[in-house]
Design a protein around this nucleic acid. Structure first.
Lengths: 215, 215
DNA sequence: TGTACATCAGTGAACGCGCGTTCACTGATGTAC
DNA sequence: TGTACATCAGTGAACGCGCGTTCACTGATGTAC
């Protein structure tokens, strides 16, 4: 902890309170959703007055921005460490699902309907592309024996999101497939659209994953 | 219009004002999203006082419920009439996308993150399953030469959502695939997650649809 | 080690706003005789 | 056709609440000499 030792007590306190604010923010988001996040409510939960939070965050949007950033980072880290532990795409997919189920609103915060009234700074686009880059790395292992589709050809010329990444079009396409298909199942499950339908969402997820990897 | 002739002028007026309220509600949802829907704002837009709306709807939740119902009905009708005109699954998919793009928030209202603070009545489940039944009808035409997957077997015993529908497990699975995959691409597109990535969302949608139908 | 000063966390009051919802009431529209 | 009555749309005031945010201020913590 040489890092924290170089900090003054005041800096350490600041860091700690900022973390505590975020913890309460996540709790609130988990129950009411991100669009209902309220600075005053967080302050009350912490036994502080509302304006006190302005010592730590410039306002509601700044707090949301940091939450979104943390969510992307947490996902990227989770996937990265699974990948480093030798996980293949199937394991990675289940890791993603586990991460999403752990805190559904955290997943929906970054991949669901945008929070109304919140406007994301440019910074966020960068961070989300970090996570995409992670996914691209993992997809490099995909078999590329499939025929080149018209969309692959399109991707060869329209790959801003993979700028600087060596992945060939077929891999880009594979990554998009991975992302959109898993999101399709996951987001409907998290939003509760499968409740009452009778089947087990985990099995549907597994079936989609099988289709995805069997190509 | 024999129907409206049997109504008294007052009844006709009521119907008209209710429709006008919903129109303004949709406008508001289209710009700010459903979670920001406000009765007072609608009343102001109509040149009325807030409490006046309580003559027409029991409250905010009642209005949202009707909007959700109308959205499901509109989608079901659109798909049904396309189907009646001889559309195959590919055309149906594009019809779905066109319907969603026409009013993204309407799509997200029924298939996106649930509106915070709103609790749907049981009635809604029924109406959503009507739309699912429509989809099942259309999927009956799917080729069923594929091998029976473990998930198909699971569906044979867990098909509450298709209660009373003659579709075999393979068709149920096909319908779920159709739904979740198209939703995956569509919802990410509508939420703006593809902006800045460079490629054309329409082409990704078409590619997913090809994969889906080529099986 | 002690004193003078600067820094900064946190408060409480206030601003202006909006929300859903209730209630007693006015005034216009329709109905019954 | 005219009069008495019932129905009902819409108003304005009010209730209680919450929101984000600003501002001048207190009091504690840290820093410099």
């Amino acid at each position: 902890m040489a890092e924290t030792d170089t900090k003054t007590p005041r800096e350490r306190y600041r860091t700690q309170v900022r973390a505590e604010i975020k913890e309460h923010a996540w709790e609130q988001i988990a129950t009411t959703g991100a669009s209902a996040l309220s600075l005053n409510a967080i302050a009350k939960q912490m036994g502080m007055s509302g304006p006190a939070l302005y010592r730590y965050y410039d306002g509601r949007d700044a707090l949301i921005t940091e939450l979104i950033r943390d969510a992307y980072r947490s996902l990227a880290d989770t996937l990265r460490s699974a990948s480093a532990a030798g996980a293949d795409l199937a394991v990675l997919a289940h890791t993603l699902r586990a991460w999403a189920l752990e805190d559904p609103q955290r997943y929906l915060l970054i991949y669901g309907t945008p929070v109304p009234g919140y406007h994301a700074p440019d910074e966020i686009t960068l961070i989300s592309s970090e996570t995409m880059a992670m996914l691209l790395d993992a997809c490099m292992a995909l078999p590329s024996d499939s025929p080149v589709t018209p969309f692959d050809a399109h991707l060869a010329d329209h790959r801003d999101w993979a700028d600087g990444h060596p992945a060939p079009p077929a891999v880009l396409h594979g990554a998009l497939r991975f992302w959109t298909r898993l999101h399709g199942v996951l987001s409907l499950e998290l939003a509760g659209h499968f409740t009452g339908m009778g089947f087990d969402p985990a099995l549907l997820f597994a079936a989609e994953l099988d289709d995805l990897l069997a190509h």
